[in-house]
């Protein structure tokens, strides 16, 4: 479905690329986690897939293709058709993605009607139904709320509901649980796994939380300073990491009942 071939991402005039020689092949319904510390280039990779690199970033080498089509050759309108319908993204804080002075419903309806020719009423109902599917109680009520009236976990669910409206084939998740409490994080992770069961959605999960990455993923990529240092199935990475960096990373994660400092 998605094929990333040896891409490099560079920002502005910076001669050192943020990502170098990154390759990834993904099938439908597969979940791949990209883990790494801050500045390792993991976010740049998924932003490159969606063609929305910030601040003068561009794919300087290699190519990305989605269902056989080269992304670099897509026109503006084709991009518009693809984004938000076939490929969608959720961010660390979906509250920041929403306009704070408009109600959720008005933004949701606008989004649906950008991609589909349906009436306002039908779009509203579709939105409310999606929200309820994401286990938000009373979708109608949420549609009439402003983003700041919802808790972080609820906003994140609104973000996921919006991203899943058109049942995308690929969902890009950029640290979707990092700003949440552990209990809410567990709820969101369960929700995302259900997406694969129900819609056969492929997910690229970018996170620095190795526990979440391991729980969700079929395959894990470990990145460091723009390079893949380790790649493999969950069992390979956790039990037989090939690089010292991954080993050190795994050792640093505190575990319940594990190593104690005192």
């Amino acid at each position: 479905m998605l094929s990333i071939r040896e891409i490099s991402v560079a920002y502005g005039n910076n001669p050192v690329p943020a990502v170098e020689n990154f390759s990834l092949e993904m099938k439908r319904g597969e979940i791949v986690s990209i883990v790494g510390e801050s500045g390792s280039g993991k976010t740049s990779v998924i932003r490159a897939v969606l063609g929305c690199l910030p601040g003068g970033g561009q794919v300087s080498r290699g190519n990305i293709s989605f269902e056989g089509r080269l992304m670099s050759e897509l026109g503006k309108e084709e991009w518009q058709r693809l984004r938000g319908t076939e490929i969608s993204m959720i961010f660390q804080d979906s509250g920041a993605m929403l306009n704070p002075v408009r109600r959720i419903g008005s933004q949701y309806v606008e989004y649906i009607r950008t991609h589909e020719k349906i009436s306002r009423r039908a779009a509203w109902e579709k939105g409310a139904r999606m929200l309820e599917q994401m286990r938000l109680p009373d979708g109608e009520h949420i549609m009439r709320s402003y983003p700041f009236q919802l808790s972080g976990g609820m906003r994140q669910r609104v973000g996921i509901a919006m991203a899943m409206t058109f049942q995308p084939k690929l969902l890009l998740a950029d640290e979707p649980t990092s700003a949440l409490d552990v209990t809410t994080q567990a709820q969101i992770v369960r929700q995302m796994l259900k997406l694969r069961e129900e819609y056969h959605t492929g997910i690229i999960m970018v996170t620095h939380n190795l526990g979440v990455a391991a729980y969700m993923a079929d395959r894990i990529l470990v990145m460091k300073e723009g390079h893949i240092v380790d790649a493999g199935t969950r069992e390979q990475i956790l039990n037989h990491p090939s690089s010292a960096y991954t080993r050190n990373l795994l050792d640093s994660v505190p575990a319940m009942g594990g190593y104690r400092f005192v």
Binding site: V182, T183, A214, A255, M256
Partner: peptide, 12 residues
């Protein structure tokens, strides 16, 4: 609270 912690040694 402890049950919702993602642990590397958990049963996946």
């Amino acid at each position: 609270l402890i049950g919702s912690v993602f642990d590397l040694h958990m049963d996946f």
